[in-house]
Amino acid sequence: MKWFVVFLLAFATASAGILPKLTPVHPKDMKHSGSIVGRITNGQEATEGQFPYQVGMSFSSNTGSWWCGGSLIGIEWVLTAAHCTSGASAAIVYLGVTVRTKPAQKLTVSSRNFYQHASYSSLLLRNDISLIKIPAVTVSNIINTIALPEVSNSYSTYEGEKAIVSGHGRESDSSSSKAKKLKWALLDIVSNTVCSDVFGTAVVTNNILCTKTEGAVSACNGDSGGPLVLNGVQVGIVSFGASSGCELGYPNAFTRVTSYRSWILSIVGA
């Protein structure tokens, strides 16, 4: 019996930090009242052409539909999260989408054009990245591409930097209204230790990048797949947060784009 008690204590100690203190969840799957579409919580309203790379997408399947964000990384390519494309049969892609209901261009693509990471895990929230091929678009002041990090053997952790997240996610945890305009927020990038203290090291790997959500400013339901941009370069993709809500001060987690530059290049080419 003593041995068994010692074993349990040892297991609890070893697993502390591995297992999450709070349940991590993709923003798309957060429980909410009302519509899945809203705004960045407590963010600022974007002006037309401020984020020409921003993409909005309405995904559909035989069980329902959902809204996600994304970014235009080439005239034929949209970058988003795997949890957005997972299970979808088609997507309506909104480009030049400052006003959600009035995109400059709208395209429909089937799941044949989805390139979801083969090792995406909905259980551990790993490899949460997808590409979508769309008909070639013409760039303008309201539709344009965002740069990705250069291919390198080493990258900065970005810790201490401030980056911009944008999307049409909910304005608050209690919001039920649909967003009419794109929202954005400036978030502080923190070390993965801060994030793993909440979500555990089994979920927060080196392929994740995390930000603070001080003042209840956060990505939220509807922002899934959207871009996190630092100095004109996309460094993250909205991946997951705390299932308990967006306004409680828990970190936002993003797929770290630098971890997938080779994967992206293998699909879209140079």
Rank of each mutant, 00 (worst) to 15 (best):
residue 9 L to Y: 10
residue 10 A to I: 13
residue 13 T to Q: 13
residue 13 T to S: 15
residue 15 S to I: 14
residue 16 A to Y: 15
residue 20 P to W: 09
residue 20 P to M: 10
residue 23 T to Y: 08
residue 27 P to S: 12
residue 28 K to T: 13
residue 29 D to Q: 08
residue 34 G to Y: 00
residue 36 I to S: 15
residue 37 V to P: 06
residue 37 V to T: 14
residue 39 R to P: 10
residue 45 E to W: 00
residue 48 E to T: 07
residue 53 Y to G: 01
residue 53 Y to T: 01
residue 54 Q to E: 00
residue 56 G to S: 06
residue 58 S to G: 12
residue 63 T to P: 11
residue 64 G to R: 07
residue 64 G to T: 10
residue 66 W to L: 05
residue 67 W to K: 14
residue 68 C to T: 07
residue 72 L to I: 01
residue 74 G to H: 15
residue 77 W to K: 02
residue 78 V to M: 00
residue 79 L to K: 00
residue 85 T to W: 12
residue 86 S to Y: 15
residue 87 G to R: 09
residue 89 S to D: 15
residue 90 A to Q: 14
residue 96 G to Y: 05
residue 98 T to Y: 02
residue 99 V to E: 13
residue 100 R to W: 08
residue 101 T to C: 05
residue 107 L to D: 04
residue 110 S to W: 03
residue 116 Q to V: 13
residue 116 Q to K: 14
residue 122 S to I: 10
residue 123 L to K: 15
residue 128 D to Y: 02
residue 130 S to F: 06
residue 132 I to D: 04
residue 133 K to S: 11
residue 134 I to Q: 10
residue 147 A to R: 13
residue 148 L to F: 06
residue 150 E to S: 14
residue 154 S to V: 08
residue 156 S to I: 04
residue 163 A to E: 06
residue 166 S to W: 01
residue 181 K to V: 08
residue 185 A to Y: 01
residue 186 L to M: 12
residue 188 D to K: 12
residue 189 I to A: 02
residue 197 D to P: 02
residue 198 V to I: 15
residue 198 V to T: 14
residue 207 N to L: 05
residue 211 T to W: 06
residue 212 K to R: 14
residue 214 E to Q: 15
residue 220 C to D: 02
residue 221 N to A: 14
residue 223 D to Y: 03
residue 224 S to I: 05
residue 228 L to M: 11
residue 234 Q to F: 09
residue 244 S to Y: 10
residue 245 G to E: 09
residue 246 C to I: 10
residue 246 C to G: 04
residue 246 C to W: 05
residue 247 E to Q: 14
residue 248 L to G: 04
residue 249 G to Q: 08
residue 254 F to V: 04
residue 257 V to T: 03
residue 263 W to C: 03
residue 264 I to S: 01
residue 266 S to P: 05
residue 267 I to G: 03
